[in-house]
Design a protein around this nucleic acid. Structure first.
Lengths: 132, 132
DNA sequence: CGGTATCCACCGGGATACTG
DNA sequence: CAGTATCCCGGTGGATACCG
């Protein structure tokens, strides 16, 4: 863990069907990860998700959930009560995704300050020396 | 590792500034992860990246690299030769991102078949019984 | 409550041409 | 070689209204 580069077992991602591109197709959108993470904590009703995810529209919540169900990551259970009640939870497959997502979350927590610092340094007006 | 849910230490992601959303802002686009992964293997010249990432336009490669440099994940080195030569490599910070990305890649490799199966099952014409 | 349906604005991103 | 500049198309996703 001390060499200049981690020896990652990833081949060239430019291939026609490439695992990295596939996983990006699933999670690299605005809402999927947030939903999976929330469902990783407990079962949620539709309206609970709607309230918990600030800024999401009803439409996008529906569409994103539909895709997650289709991909086998989320299970949908509808109860024929009135008013209706629909619950969403992670499937076994969906739960396996929590591990890498948690790693990503941990990375974000550890390095958020570094990123903010990098941005500030980059956006600093021209010369890095000479302050007046 | 056998309970119904992994106990992930992620809080509600709906907060104003939330680590998960921040990391998504960085990697949840079409090209950033592919570039980081390629640079995780070795230094690349601009044209090497261009050839290695199938489907990327010169414009998007430039823009994405610029953002990655700004975020402190990638370092850019230009040599004043003619013709010019520009090399991109991961920074120390960028290399730390390889670990969670590798976890995500491993997940994709392990579960790609499950996802394909889930999709096929979901898209199966109506009734799961009765084949005629 | 948990959706659909419709309309539309925005912008990510491709194609192409040009430059230091 | 490594970009920049311009144009423009299509899909993502928000707002709103309606439905079972």
């Amino acid at each position: 863990m001390s060499g200049p580069y981690l020896n990652v077992p990833v081949p060239v991602p430019a291939d026609a069907d490439c695992p990295i591109r596939e996983v990006l197709d699933i999670v690299a959108d605005k809402w999927s990860v947030l939903i999976v993470v929330l469902l990783g904590q407990r079962i949620h009703r539709f309206s609970e998700l709607h309230r918990s995810i600030e800024g999401i529209s009803q439409r996008m919540l529906t569409l994103t959930l539909r895709t997650l169900v289709r991909d086998g990551l989320v299970a949908r259970t509808a109860y024929a009560t009135v008013p209706p009640r629909v619950e969403y939870e992670l499937t076994e497959l969906g739960r396996t995704l929590l591990e890498p997502l948690t790693a990503l979350d941990a990375w974000a927590r550890e390095h958020r300050d570094d990123i903010v610092a990098a941005r500030r340094h980059h956006d600093a007006p021209e010369s890095e020396a000479a302050r007046r």
